[in-house]
Nucleic acid binder design. Structure first.
Lengths: 160, 160
DNA sequence: TTTTATGCAAAACTTTTGCAGCTGA
DNA sequence: TCAGCTGCAAAAGTTTTGCATAAAA
């Protein structure tokens, strides 16, 4: 995953601000902090991690949740699952999107990109008159390591 | 969504049982009840709804969760998000899979099927030596109704 | 008989909310 | 100014766990 360049980050930041304004939402310090934190980190994040980082800037947990749902509403982030318990958030429409293969045994996540899938989702959105904002594709299966383990020792699958 | 025929259901039930046995897991009444309930309902379900239905058969909430995670591990169900708060579960590898377009404004869900996507996911899994068990594709965007509303009255987006 | 599963109730988490005070436009 | 944000703390909701008992093999 490549970090965004400074220029691009600022451009994106401005775009989010204007998105918020369009929705009649105030641009507050708290919201700026959340957006900046999102832009500074990886493309997908635990809410928990965001809360921890933002707490040091005086942003409360409640505000993190409130801001995320606001940003989801305007189409800047999207909730994703990635086979785990707690929710993650991911940027939308930021280019450089990738999808995931997830092992249902050990949780291993393999990233991949597919231009064909990008193309297909555009077609599908268009066909249903949706304004495309992003997508989540998780392919679930059993990874090569777990398949091998499975054969060797049928019962100790946990510690793959 | 078409309900499964009786014969197909029984066949599937037998398959799950043997899957469980393969994993050295006991076939208990509770587990049978959960699997049957899953096979009798829609392809994706709220955990909450499952708990309610199974409670009347004497199955506890804890067992529903335990059984679901077991079934997830053997590859019979998969956790999905569908843009909502609480988790849903979905059958895997049961054929007749469909994906979803989700409106980030109003939560509207539109189902669609794409044989091209089915084909692509198979290729991708194969390429990474994963044993394919299923996939989740959610395309997120703004539905035609919300787009219209957006233009008409910029600020009352909630009650789309 | 022995091992594994279950129900119960409590604990651990995650997310939302009401409200009083604060802040951005 | 003042509608809209925010933090706090409490509530609500979801998922997991320990343990005594029950059920499967």
């Amino acid at each position: 995953m490549i970090a965004m360049g400074r220029g691009k980050k600022e451009e994106k930041f401005a775009k989010v601000c204007s998105l918020l304004r369009e929705h009649g939402v105030r641009i507050t310090n708290v919201r700026k902090a959340v957006v900046k934190e999102l832009l500074n980190g990886k493309q997908h994040r635990h809410v928990e991690e965001l809360c921890r980082k933002l707490a040091s800037k005086g942003v409360s947990r409640a505000s993190v949740y409130r801001t995320l749902s606001l940003l989801e509403h305007v189409g800047f982030v999207s909730k994703v699952l990635y086979g785990e318990r707690h929710s993650h958030f991911e940027f939308l429409s930021i280019g450089e999107h990738h999808d995931h293969l997830i092992c249902i045994r050990c949780g291993r996540i393999v990233e991949f990109k597919s231009s064909q899938i990008e193309r297909l989702q555009k077609e599908i959105a268009k066909k249903h008159s949706f304004e495309l904002k992003g997508h989540v594709l998780e392919i679930r299966g059993i990874c090569p390591q777990c398949k091998r383990l499975n054969k060797e020792q049928e019962k100790t699958v946990k510690d793959c």
